[in-house]
Nucleic acid binder design. Sequence first.
RNA 1: UGCCUGAUAGUAUAAUGGUAGUACGACGGUUUUUGGUACCGUUUGUCUAGGUUCGAAUCCUGGUCGGGCAACCA
Length: 552
Amino acid sequence: MSEERSLNFLEEIVEEDMRQGKHAGRVLTRFPPEPNGYLHIGHAKSICLNFGLAQKYNGQTNLRFDDTNPTKEETEYVDSIKADIQWLGFEWANELYASDYFDIIYAFALTLIRKGLAYVDDSSPEEIAAQKGTPTEPGIGNQYRNRSIEENLRLFEQMKAGKYPDGAKVLRAKIDLASPVMHMRDPIMYRIKHAHHHRTGDKWCIYPMYDFAHGQSDAIEEITHSVCTLEFVPHRPLYDWFIEQLEIFPSKQYEFARLNMNYTVMSKRKLLQLVEQGYVEDWDDPRMPTISGLRRRGYTPNSIREFCERIGVARRENMIDLSLLEFCIREDLNKTAWRRMAVLDPIKMIIRNYPEDQFEETYSENNPEAEGGDGGRNIPFGRELWIERDDFMEDPPKKFFRLGVGLMVRLKSAYIVKCEHFEKDVDGNVTEIHCTYFPESRSGNDTSGISVKGTIHWVSVAHAKTAEVRLYDRLFQVEDPSNEHGDFKEYLNPNSLHIIPKAYIEADLDHAEMGKGYQFMRKGYFTLDKHSTPDSLVFNRTVTLKDSWVKK
RNA sequence: UGCCUGAUAGUAUAAUGGUAGUACGACGGUUUUUGGUACCGUUUGUCUAGGUUCGAAUCCUGGUCGGGCAACCA
């Protein structure tokens, strides 16, 4: 039953390692976010990859916060990251922090200094940049490069002791200023930052750089496969160099292409701008590609995991169609979401031959896709109904299977009606549609012999509840906003949010549960917004239904 | 013009020297009390030029095009 699926390149690496008996077949990965923002769908790819890879080979995954830059990191982000990973359905083996290793990493630095492989440099950032050269010209050394081991030891200890202000000195690896690889030109290992750290408080005033923290943390945890995105490829020689010189656990770094998706942006920097400058409500605005935004929008963990599975893993740059994400959530919700009726843009229908004060109940199953319909509910029906404005046309075209004078449709789970007449106001807007119904066409025991092409949804005027409904569209008008001229924010879609203050919904939706998806028949999938209250319901549209009817 | 990377339908992703396949999209059809779902079908592809080979998407050489690298960010 298990279809033979081909391995992605990382699975092949792991299997090859196992074949060779590396690490005795042990697999330990890690997911290493910096707690400086909220996780987005691109992180979901990395999470599914790291946790999935370990799971597949009976290994484990550590959650490690890469918190080496105290000025950008906050506990709020730590909490949201943990919540998002758990929501996605993954469990980490250990919750760890790079900052937990500051003492060890400091000792590592001393080791390198003693080996003559690191030195304290008093140059300014500008001087260091200038001395680094360019990709085509080699860099040059300075007088600090030849300091004695003793002097370096003393100065570095004084850096740690807080003797110098920010920027006065750095600790650099002594490698090769002429290396064709820019990252090997004596990279900075430690900088001075008199800043409060979200975990270590004021204990430290020097902090290791990424390159002297990440691989070291991997080694300390004995990570077997350190998987990251392609932009870290140039760092790999350095990653290996530090590990080799330090003679610590030989973790290996592997890189894959990060997720890009059209009609959105995926960098924390840009997402932060949208939040801070008020273009969206917050990190969890349902238009955001963040995990929390998708969750609020109504995406399920299952759909996101499925999406990550389908996009695959490779080293080639990619741009994934938003339509694939939408396919995944529709596929999931179609199987599970209860169907309900809701009229978003109402117009009144009057059934002339249905008695004025008469009502009846009609039964409808919750989900035709599920076994036994997943139960059902009764829906009140009467003479006056709300129907969707665009289910009626004054001059219907040839294949319009809805209402127009003389046309017939079935009211879902109820009767077939025929449109006899309509009324307009002075501005020419249609205000009422008058129909007659066929009593013998009742859903379930239709003996009318009439067959109609269209079925429309409706809500009884006398019983309808109301709700605010928020419709979302793509955040940007162009496929790749970051690649356009000028500021990416110029390409925001002005119609990404459309609020319907008062939609008429089936009374049963009173019992809608937070976190559950509902299909508003023929309209899409919806879910309760976090700001919804029993007295004033608010629904977010997760995604529309696929619509293959093209208007001419 | 230094170093590192990559190139297979519109978008992704397989084929590991032996029939270029799958998914999403698009288009068309069947079924349907959701113009949904399901099912069926159609469409379009190995960047280029040479070479090795009985045989190349795959190996070799040269080109072309794309991405990345010069933060006291990660």
